Every structure is written in structure tokens, then in C-alpha cells.
Computed example of a mutant assay.
Amino acid sequence: MNTGTGKTALITGASSGIGQELAKLFAQDGYNLVLVARSDDKLDRLAEVFKSNYGTQEITVIGKDLATEDAAQDVYNQVKAKDITVDVLVNDAGVGLYGLFATDTDWEREKAMIHLNVLTVTQMTKLFLYDMLARNEGKILNLASLLSITPTPLMAVYAGTKAYVYNFTQSLINELKDTNVTITALLPNATDTDFFNKAGAENTKVTDEVQDPVMVAKAGYDALMAGKSKVVPGGFKNKSYEVLSYVAPQETLAAVMRDKMSQKPEPEEKEPTISLAWGIGFGIAVIAGIALTIGYKNTSDFQKAKYRYKVKSAGNSLSDTLSSVLDTVVETVVDAYQNTKAKAEQIVAKTEDVEEEIAA
């Protein structure tokens, strides 16, 4: 049982998924909590668990549908009325919607999603950031997504809202650079929560590779506490996706994401040849991305510029694009080899020395 830090974290979307796991981490570290979600009952039960398991001293529950007009202002007013100082703001609440934008999706649901994912996040940030700057102390975590940096057919509006969150966050980081207030963007890949069910995307291919929300929350929490600008949980694979999103042509990324967001084939059906081709192509691209993450930082500025130019000059067709990217990556890694070889040899030598000491 902890003694408390005297600080308070406000978490939206705290009743489930990543938000609940983040709330748990704050509780474990002795923070008082303000938990915000639509379901009062779920939040009340969660509050009892935190008080029992972690000795959380003060927990305020605010049941609020954040997709409604001026919901953020109402939450802020309730917090101020209780004389609570919010030291950490976590904008986790968000929803998605699956389908073809022109024909499948409902405008009212999209409008509510834009309100929640964009307007509420922006207003919550504005209200609490003002107070943080007055104290010159505070932290904010905004839930973006890997989809915030890549076009995503079949979830076009959702990806657009997350692109806003990511760009908004990175812009504020620059505005806050001379203060003691930090803001962090969390960019997870598909995560094992109820998100896909609520979005109507429960049978999409991407759900076969969902990640543990406990891992995602811990990565976000650690990055927030360290004052980092962003974090992509999930290791090399997701890092390679991030790198590719910055350098690969948008047409290629859109086609890859269209396949990942498509429905799983029926067991008796054979997947179309084009899906297999995209799968192979994307696998190659991931390998290329991993190679790039190793070699790119050790490459000269000239080679980096040369690399970016070649990628932008790639053709629109998949075969030409992948060929150009792979050729360029290979060339980049080869050019970087001389710079990385010595470092690699040093690491191997140190490892061998440690092994010899253990054996002795």
C-alpha cells in the first residue's frame, strides 16, 4: 500500500482498455485519480479496486459522454469546483468507425467521433494546459495511433482524427519547449481492447496481430514520465512501420493498409492472389524497415538526402515502388556498414569478455 504522491492524474476513457491500464499505473505509483468515462458504474467499481489494491487516497469519478457539446468544459468545471489540481492529463478516450466513407458509414456516428477524438481532446488540453503553464509544471499524454502517420482506407475518418491528434501534439511540444510542461503522443498499433468491436471492424485482418494493452499502457506511461515527445510501443516491428510511413509513397501505404483493414476470408475461400502479393510485399517492406532503423541513424546527411530523393522518385506501381525502396535501403545499409561495423565489433567483444568472466 502506497502513501501517495499528493499529485492527481485525470484519465479519460478510464473504464476499459488502455485507459484503464494507465489508471492502474498511476494508482500503483500513488497518484490521486480523476476517472472520466460514460459509465459511472464501471468507474465506481474500478475506484473500489484501486482503493483496495493500491491504497489510492482520493478518487473522483465523473460520468460523462465526451462526444457531446462542451463536455470538456463540464469536466473541467467539475474538477475546479472540487478544488482539484490536475498534474497529469491523459486524453485516452476515443472511438473508431469501420467502412467505406461514401457508402457504408453513418454521418452522425462520424460527427460524434470527430467531436470526441478531436474537439474534446483539443478543449481538454487547452483548459488544463493553461493551468499547468500558470504553475509551470504538468504532463499531458495524448493517445494517437500508428494510423496517425499513414493513410488508412476503410477507417479514413478515424485515421484523420488521429493524424490531427499527432500533429497537434507535436506542435505543442515546440510551443512548450521552454517550460516545465511536457506533452507526449502515444502511437500504438492495433491493441486488444473492445475498440474493433465498437468500430464494427472485429473481423478485419489487423485483429490477428493485436497487442497487449498492458504493454501499450506501460510504454506510454514511461514515455510520459520521461517527458518524451512520442512513443511507439511494440519493438522493432512497429518501429519499422513508423520509419516506412515517413519514407514510402503514400499510395503504397494506402494499398497496404487497405489490405490489412479488409475482412478476413472465409475458411473455405482462397485469398485472392493480390492479397498474397501484398502480404509478401509488406513482409519485405517490414524487413527493409528493420534494416533501415539499424543503418539510417549512422548514415551521412548526404546519403539520407539521397535516400529521400530516391523514395520520392519511385514509380507509382507496387513492383516499381518496392524495388526502388529495397534497392535504396540496401544501398543505404551498405554505405552505413563502415560506420556500424566497428560499433558492432565492440559490442561483440564486450559480450565475449562478460561471458569469459562468468565462465571463470
Rank of each mutant, 00 (worst) to 15 (best):
S15N: 08
V79R: 04
R109H: 10
T252F: 13
V181Q: 01
K264P: 03
D208I: 03
P151T: 07
A291M: 10
A314W: 00
E48C: 08
D65N: 07
M1Y: 10
K297E: 10
F128G: 01
D320I: 15
T179C: 02
M113S: 00
Y130H: 13
T273E: 13
N339G: 08
G281Q: 02
G227N: 03
V118W: 10
E345C: 11
Y221R: 05
A112C: 03
S52R: 14
I290Q: 02
L176D: 07
V79E: 08
G220H: 12
Q123M: 14
T332I: 15
I59K: 08
E352Q: 09
K177W: 09
K24N: 13
I114W: 02
N180I: 10
K111M: 05
E110K: 04
G289Y: 02
Q123P: 04
A336K: 04
L43N: 01
S171V: 07
A285D: 00
T68L: 07
D74I: 11
A199C: 03
T340F: 12
V181I: 00
L292F: 02
S16Y: 09
E242M: 15
S300C: 00
F196V: 05
A156S: 11
E110H: 00
Y158S: 00
G283Q: 03
S15R: 00
A156T: 13
S171R: 08
G160Q: 02
D192T: 06
A226K: 11
T152N: 01
D40C: 09
A288F: 00
T12F: 05
K111W: 05
E175D: 15
K310V: 06
V348D: 15
S323Y: 15
A201R: 05
K341H: 12
T60Y: 11
P213R: 04
L322W: 06
G30H: 05
L97E: 13
T60H: 15
A254L: 03
K312M: 11
L141K: 07
A81E: 12
M225E: 12
G19Q: 01
L172N: 05
T150D: 01
V354E: 14
V348A: 14
G227S: 04
D208M: 12
V214P: 07
E357M: 13
I114A: 02
V232W: 02
G55M: 03
A277W: 12
P272L: 02
Y158G: 00
R45A: 14
D74H: 08
M155Q: 12
T85F: 07
G6H: 00
E209P: 08
I347D: 13
V206W: 07
K350S: 13
P233D: 03
E356M: 14
K260L: 11
A344Q: 09
G289D: 00
S313Y: 09
F196P: 07
N180F: 08
P233Q: 06
A134C: 09
A291V: 06
Q73F: 10
L143Q: 04
Y307E: 06
T299Q: 08
D301H: 12
N238L: 04
T68E: 11
N174P: 09
E242F: 12
V118E: 13
F50K: 05
N32R: 07
Y98N: 07
A291P: 03
M1I: 13
T3V: 15
G19W: 01
T273Y: 13
N2K: 14
F302N: 13
A219H: 10
H115S: 11
V333W: 03
G200Q: 06
Q346C: 04
L10W: 04
P272E: 09
